[in-house]
Amino acid sequence: EEEKYTVIYPYTARDQDEMNLERGAVVEVIQKNLEGWWKIRYQGKEGWAPASYLKKNSG
């Protein structure tokens, strides 16, 4: 089951394993960790993003 989330704040990656996020983008969360960083898939790429910048899509 894919978990789709919408980006609610833009984010600029500060590290090579982080993802740039555009507000309104829909991403797939593939791994959650306890530090508040989630691994996401977006446009065929995978990387880490701050969970607080993502909002779960309803339905």
Rank of each mutant, 00 (worst) to 15 (best):
K4L: 13
Y5R: 02
Q31C: 09
E35M: 08
W48P: 02
K56M: 13
M19K: 02
G44M: 01
K55C: 05
K45F: 05
T12Y: 07
E22A: 14
G36I: 05
E35W: 05
A25D: 12
L21Q: 00
L21F: 02
K4F: 15
R41C: 06
Y5S: 02
G59N: 12
A13E: 03
G59L: 04
V27W: 00
G36H: 12
W48V: 09
P10N: 13
M19S: 04
R41F: 03
E22R: 10
D17N: 12
L21A: 01
A25N: 08
N20E: 11
P50D: 05
E22T: 14
E1C: 05
W48I: 12
G44Q: 07
L54G: 00
R23T: 11
E28G: 10
V26D: 04
T6Q: 12
I30L: 10
N20H: 08
P50H: 06
K55W: 04
R23H: 08
V26G: 02
K56G: 09
M19D: 01
W48T: 08
Q31N: 13
D15E: 13
N20G: 12
V27C: 06
T12S: 11
L21M: 07
E22K: 14
E28R: 05
Y9E: 15
I40T: 02
K55R: 09
P10V: 02
Q16S: 13
N33P: 13
N33M: 10
K32S: 10
T6I: 13
W38M: 01
A13C: 09
G36N: 10
Y9V: 15
Y42M: 06
Y11N: 03
K32A: 09
W37P: 15
V27F: 00
Q43L: 07
K32Y: 03
Q43N: 13
D15Y: 04
G36F: 04
A51S: 10
K55G: 09
R14F: 03
R23Q: 15
L21W: 01
E46W: 03
Y9R: 15
A49V: 12
E22Q: 07
A25E: 15
Y11A: 02
Y42R: 05
I8C: 12
G47S: 10
S58H: 05
V29E: 00
N33F: 04
W48N: 09
S52F: 04
Q31T: 08
R23I: 09
L34M: 12
M19A: 10
K56E: 10
I30E: 03
D17H: 15
N20Y: 07
D15L: 08
L54H: 01
Y42A: 09
V27I: 07
E1T: 05
K4D: 13
S58D: 12
Q31H: 09
E1A: 06
I8T: 08
D15R: 13
I30P: 01
A51V: 06
R14D: 10
I40M: 01
E3H: 12
E46Q: 14
Y42Q: 09
A49P: 00
W37N: 09
E18G: 13
Y11F: 14
E1Y: 04
D17M: 15
L21N: 00
D15F: 04
K45M: 15
Y53R: 13
V27L: 02
T6C: 11
E3K: 08
Y5F: 14
A13D: 05
N33W: 04
R41N: 11
I8S: 13
Y42D: 08
I30R: 06
Q16D: 12
G44S: 09
Y11Q: 02
E28F: 06
A49N: 00
D17Q: 15
Y11H: 11
G59M: 10
Y9L: 15
W48M: 15
Y42P: 01
Q43S: 08
V27A: 01
E1R: 04
Y5W: 08
S58I: 08
E3N: 14
I8A: 15
T12F: 07
P50M: 02
W38L: 01
Y9I: 15
P50Q: 05
W37G: 06
E22D: 08
I8R: 11
A25H: 05
E28D: 13
Q16E: 07
R14V: 09
E3A: 06
T12V: 10
A49E: 00
W37M: 02
R14Y: 03
Y53V: 14
Y11I: 15
W38C: 03
T6R: 12
D17G: 14
E46A: 11
G47R: 03
Y53K: 07
L34R: 15
Y53A: 15
N57C: 10
Y5T: 02
Q43I: 03
Q43T: 05
W37H: 03
E35Q: 15
E22G: 07
N20C: 07
E2W: 04
Q16F: 03
V29C: 10
D15V: 11
G47E: 01
L54E: 00
Y5D: 01
Y9P: 01
K55D: 14
T6G: 02
Q43G: 14
S58A: 05
A13V: 08
K32N: 05
L54D: 00
S58V: 07
E1H: 02
Y53S: 15
G47H: 04
A51I: 05
Y9W: 09
V29F: 01
E18H: 14
K32T: 08
M19Q: 05
V7S: 02
K56N: 08
W48Q: 11
V26S: 06
L34V: 13
G47L: 12
Y11D: 02
G59P: 11
A13S: 07
S58E: 02
N33G: 15
E18F: 09
K32M: 05
E2N: 06
K55Q: 11
W48F: 11
A51D: 05
V27R: 00
E18T: 11
E2R: 03
E18R: 05
G47T: 07
L34A: 15
V27Q: 00
Q31G: 12
G47P: 01
K32Q: 03
V27G: 00
P50V: 01
V7Q: 00
Q31A: 13
N33Q: 04
W48S: 05
N57Y: 10
W48L: 13
N20W: 05
E2I: 08
E46D: 03
N20T: 11
E2G: 09
D17Y: 10
W38V: 03
K55N: 06
G36Y: 11
T6P: 00
E35I: 12
Q43M: 09
E35S: 14
E18K: 10
G44W: 01
A51R: 13
L54A: 00
E3V: 08
K45C: 11
E3G: 05
E46V: 12
E22C: 10
Q16H: 10
T12H: 12
A13T: 08
V7L: 08
N20M: 12
S58T: 06
L21D: 00
T6M: 11
K4H: 09
Q16G: 13
K45H: 15
G59S: 11
W38Q: 01
R41L: 05
S52A: 10
D17V: 08
G44N: 04
V27K: 00
E22H: 07
E18W: 03
N57G: 12
K56H: 08
L34Q: 14
K4Q: 06
Y9C: 14
I8E: 09
G44I: 00
A13I: 10
S52R: 15
R14K: 13
E2H: 04
Y53M: 07
T12Q: 06
W38R: 14
V26Q: 08
E35A: 13
V29Q: 00
Y9G: 15
Y9H: 15
L34P: 15
K45G: 06
Q16I: 08
N33Y: 07
Y42L: 09
V26W: 03
V29D: 00
D15M: 15
Q16W: 07
T6K: 13
N57L: 09
A25T: 14
L21P: 01
M19P: 06
L54R: 00
M19H: 05
Q43P: 00
V29S: 01
E2C: 03
S58F: 06
D15P: 05
Q16R: 14
E3S: 08
Y53L: 13
V26P: 03
K32W: 03
L21Y: 01
L21V: 07
I8Y: 05
T6W: 04
I30S: 05
K32G: 05
P50S: 03
G24W: 03
S52H: 11
K55L: 04
